[in-house]
Structure formats: structure tokens, C-alpha cells
């Protein structure tokens, strides 16, 4: 029984890591196809992609959209969560439902809806349009995380601050935000990674300035290439380091 469990665990990890390992190994392939046999080690594909202007621009665009849209989503979500947590408002169940709703809808539908809507009101596909779409998908997440993190402990601290003369803005800035810092950090981090990696909405809502996933998508059209492996490995390296850093600095800091 015990042995079986360990074998299962090993097989599970093998399955999970198989594609990643293949991806990374063949990004160093000294040949034109990223498939066996391995023909030797080279970094030329990395050199090629880092000097690829379109790719690097797309990378910059992705980072920009990810950070700005996450900042907006977090701000809106945090304020809404605070508003709904501090007082019982009429219709608060309905409002919570509406704020969470986009979470249960496919990105395709959100993207298509926005495309239809933007077409009708004359907004051209752009990074801004994509950013707006990313706020829509990340707002429910930020709201839910903030709302779940607000407990009695926090409410009573806010009450005490109000009693001591703090205005609502001061309560938010000096008490709520610092007390929620871990949750805010986690929400922002998750939003950034989701936005950074989001393909479909960006594909539908960008045209000339594209984000990284859209650029990678167009690379795939030319078939298998170690260059694509190199891009994938690089993105994985960046994301994985961010995750590991977040794990160490954000989530470990629970007293």
C-alpha cells in the first residue's frame, strides 16, 4: 500500500513534468527540429529569440497589460470587497453575485462579447481593449480573495480607527490595506500571471500591438521549431521564478 502510493506519486510527477522537460531539453537542440535524437547543445535559439524585435515587443506589451490591468482589477475589487464587508447593503447578495459572475463564463465568451460590443461602439482592437478584458476576468478573483480575507478581526480594527478619528480613506489606507497585505499581494500576483498568460481575449482584441501569447501563437504556425521551445522555456523560467519567489516571500510570512 505504502509502496503503491510512492509509485503513484512518482508516475504523477513524471506525467506532470514530461512535456516541460521535453520542451526545455530540446530548446538546446543543435538542429532544426526539437525532437529526438538530441544532436548537441547550443544556445543559438535563445540568441535568436532575444534579438527578435517583435517577440521582445510582445513581451513588453504583455508585462504592461498584466501589471496595469491587475492594478485596476485589484483596486476595484478591494474597494468593492471593503464596501460590501463593512455594512449590510440592500441587495448585497445580488451585487456579490454580479461581481463573481464573470468567473463562471468562458474567456471565449467574454472576448467575443467585448469584440461585438467594441465593434458596435467603434473601439478598435488594441492593448487597451485587451487590458479592459483582462480587468473583467481578474476583477472577480481580486474581489473574492479580498472579500474572503476580511474577517471580524479586521472589521473591529477598522471600527477602532474610525472611533479614533480616521476618515474612510484613512481607514482604507492605514488599516485595511496593510492588514490585508498578504491577500492583496496574492490577488495581484495571481492576476498578473493570469493576464500575462491569457491568449484568447488578447487574440480577439489585439491587432497590431500583440501580447506574448498571441505572438507565440503566430510562431506555432510555422510548425515545430527549437526557437519556440526556447521562448516557451524562457517564459516558464520567468513564471516559475516569480512563483517560487512569491512562495518564499508572500505565502511563507504567516506568523
Amino acid at each position: 500500500m505504502k509502496l503503491l502510493a510512492w509509485i503513484y506519486l512518482a508516475l504523477g510527477y513524471a506525467f506532470i513534468f514530461l512535456p516541460v522537460v521535453v520542451l526545455v531539453v530540446f530548446s538546446f537542440q543543435d538542429g532544426r527540429l526539437p525532437v529526438p535524437p538530441f544532436q548537441g547543445f547550443t544556445l543559438k535559439w535563445y540568441a535568436q529569440i532575444t534579438s527578435d524585435g517583435a517577440l521582445m515587443t510582445a513581451l513588453g506589451n504583455s508585462a504592461l497589460v498584466a501589471f496595469l490591468s491587475s492594478a485596476v482589477a485589484l483596486t476595484l475589487g478591494f474597494l468593492a470587497a471593503h464596501g460590501l464587508a463593512r455594512a449590510v447593503l440592500p441587495g448585497s447578495v445580488l451585487m456579490r453575485g454580479m461581481l463573481i459572475a464573470p468567473m463562471t463564463v468562458s474567456y471565449l465568451i467574454i472576448g467575443l462579447g467585448l469584440l461585438t460590443f467594441f465593434n458596435r461602439i467603434g473601439v478598435k482592437p488594441s492593448l487597451l481593449a485587451t487590458g479592459i478584458g483582462h480587468v473583467v476576468i481578474n476583477l472577480p478573483l481580486c474581489f473574492a480573495i479580498c472579500y474572503a480575507a476580511m474577517g471580524d478581526h479586521q472589521r473591529s480594527a477598522e471600527r477602532a480607527a474610525r472611533d479614533l478619528g480616521a476618515s474612510e480613506a484613512q481607514v482604507l489606507w492605514h488599516i485595511s490595506a496593510p492588514m490585508l497585505a498578504p491577500a492583496l499581494g496574492a490577488a495581484f500576483f495571481l492576476s498578473v500571471t493570469f493576464s500575462w498568460d491569457e491568449f484568447l481575449i488578447a487574440f480577439l482584441l489585439t491587432r497590431f500591438d500583440v501580447t506574448l501569447p498571441v505572438e507565440i501563437w503566430s510562431m506555432l504556425r510555422s510548425g515545430l521549431s527549437p526557437a519556440t521551445n526556447a521562448v516557451g522555456s524562457l517564459v516558464f523560467l520567468i513564471s516559475a521564478s516569480v512563483v517560487v519567489l512569491a512562495e518564499i516571500f508572500l505565502l511563507r510570512r504567516k506568523p
Binding site: 473591529s156 480594527a157 471600527r159 474610525r162 472611533d163 478619528g165 496593510p178 497585505a181
Partner: peptide, 21 residues
């Protein structure tokens, strides 16, 4: 008149100290 504007302050049952300060 809001709590902040009253000449009163409260010591709360759970103290409500600000943990980050």
C-alpha cells in the same frame, strides 16, 4: 454625529489593536 467626531473613544472587547503597527 459620527464616532470620530464625538468626544468619546472606545476600548473594544477584542482590543482591535492594529497588528501591522
Amino acid at each position: 454625529i459620527a464616532p470620530a467626531a464625538r468626544p468619546t473613544t472606545t476600548v473594544f472587547q477584542d482590543y482591535a489593536l492594529f497588528p501591522h503597527m
